[in-house]
Nucleic acid binder design. Structure first.
Lengths: 328, 328
DNA sequence: GAATATCATCGCTTTTCACGATCGACGCCG
DNA sequence: CGGCGTCGATCGTGAAAAGCGATGATATTC
């Protein structure tokens, strides 16, 4: 693929060439490079063997050496080569410092509550980093080319994960539909409800509700949270949503809606962060995992006290204040 | 000047990286590169030491190895580096084949008679070459940044040279001013003449004429040959010009002019080609010298028979037929 | 012509390179 | 579930090369 000669070139030799051309002397170049004069002399000899001709005219005596025409050609290209090698080293350093690109797959409510904080902190730490999010949600979640994938469950394929948080399900109903405070699960039996499509954790939730003895009537399914909540406000029915979704949509500050705990509480959905098993992660990805774990921990600190408490105390400094996009 | 790490990089290792990334296997890459697997393994180990982290995930077993994010960074830049190294090798090969740039200093009549042939043959042999001519003629001719310098005499400084030809002086006069055939030098005594300025070989010529017993009246001096010959045609006087200038201006084909030998002939001016002593020349420059010598030899073959012979036989195949620029 | 400055060369030691053989890890398949 | 084949890592060895210090050759300078 590459000519044999090419690989005989050594960057060290080109650096010596450049240093000598600058200094006009093998000895001074050697001093600058931290070699002895004889070593530099041999390096140039090796370079001249590789390119097949002398690169310096050595006038002898105290007069400075001078590049031959061949030497000029080699030096011109060689300097570019050295610059590019330096660029490579810089790129490696920047990469190790955390710059670079990261591809994150996300879904639903995670994008609105957890990711903004993660992205903000990541960009604060690494202003040059290239963060790419995708909220595609195929039937089977998979990592594909993603570095990280948020998902509310385990995924197929060789993936490692951390559980970020347990996201408890809460009942969101119109004001006055239920008395304040926890609602017994059986009260949902026969009740009109709106709900997410049967993806992700939704089947598990509905099975849990059924096991709790309630058979609600699902009168509308959509993945768009705003639509769902509009229907709740409109009195079409109530909804059982994870706390993250409730929080992301700012439900507690809406007078027409009430948030109730359920008794017994359905098993919370777990939100996981996945990455390929057995693959070395970029420093940026590692940091992103750390940050996501921290952000999730902060959220769960909030969670218990937040539920059912007066609106306003829920938002902490550092928590997302940016406008929450639709929860998908 | 360059980070220490940079010079630890070796092009060979980057080539191994690329080969492995292409093949998905250390062993196959080794086969492709002509190494053993263990050698490639060590090369990658060295590369990983240089960049400070693993560049491949080795899943173990028969599954292919895969680049780590760091490996992708290194490979991306590394391929550029390899491409540039190859470009360097190409440039060296082209240079050795004779491509490249050449700076030639020329003067007066040489540009019109010798150089066109030299340039044409050089460009035929090396279509990509970059030939630059300069006809500046300072008081003291010097090589400066020139690769080659034509001059009708020896120059100061450390220069080597070849004598291209002896350029005999001829008398150019109006038709009828002198009888056909050689003209005795004394006949110029008191005669009106036009001449070049007192640069180059001109002082030596005029001293030679004076030593021959003739004191012509110089009634006009200019370095522009066309002007000089116009004055001869106009009857202002005759001129003693080197054969090259006579040939370059196509004098013998002009009915109003006659070319005479002088008896005794003044010592001819010598035309030399100079280059820096002790400096390696580019292959292109070496070839240019060869060609110039050949062209001059062809001219001198012409010279004896050409003088005074019918116009038309003077031009040989391969001799300049391009329009001769003003000989100024 | 001695002093000086410069690069090339020669031994010498240390390091690296490349190889072959072997080991251990892993997926596959009976 | 235990052989088996494939893979990369590792070890030991011999050859090559890097680097060093000392010496030699050459040209300038005083």
């Amino acid at each position: 693929m590459y000519a044999n000669d090419v690989l005989d070139l050594e960057l060290r030799h080109l650096a010596a060439l450049a240093a000598i051309a600058d200094e006009g002397s093998f000895g001074r170049a050697a001093t600058r490079l931290g070699y002895t004069q004889s070593t530099v002399s041999q390096q140039i000899a090796a370079l001249e063997k590789a390119v097949g001709g002398p690169v310096f005219d050595r006038p002898g005596g105290p007069r400075p050496v001078r590049l031959t025409p061949l030497g000029s050609v080699v030096l011109g290209r060689g300097r570019e080569l050295l610059a590019q090698a330096e660029a490579l080293a810089d790129a490696v350093d920047r990469f190790k410092a955390g710059d670079g690109r990261i591809d994150i797959g996300t879904f639903q409510s995670v994008s609105s509550v957890i990711l903004p904080s993660v992205v903000r902190r990541l960009r604060e730490e690494h202003p040059g980093c290239d963060i790419r999010l995708s909220e595609e949600e195929p039937e089977q979640p998979h990592l594909g080319d993603l570095d990280l994938l948020f998902y509310d469950g385990l995924i197929d394929g060789d993936a490692e994960h951390v559980k970020l948080l347990d996201d408890p399900y809460l009942l969101v109903a119109g004001a006055g539909a239920f008395p304040e405070g926890p609602v017994p699960l059986e009260r949902l039996d026969g009740a009109p409800m709106v709900a997410w499509p049967l993806t992700c954790d939704q089947p598990a939730l509905e099975q849990a509700i059924a096991r709790g003895g309630a058979r609600p009537r699902i009168v509308f399914r959509t993945a768009v949270n705003d639509t769902l909540l509009s229907m709740v406000r409109a009195g079409l029915g109530s909804a059982v949503l994870p706390w993250l979704a409730v929080r992301g949509a700012d439900v507690p500050s809406d007078d027409r809606l009430r948030v109730h705990e359920l008794r017994p509480a359905p098993p919370p959905r777990a939100v996981y962060l996945h990455w390929r098993a057995g693959r070395t992660q970029s420093p940026l990805a590692r940091r992103a995992v750390e940050i996501a774990v921290e952000v999730a921990a902060d959220l769960t600190l909030d969670a218990p006290s937040a539920i059912g408490v007066a609106p306003g105390t829920r938002s902490r400094p550092g928590a997302p204040s940016a406008p929450a996009p639709s929860l998908g």
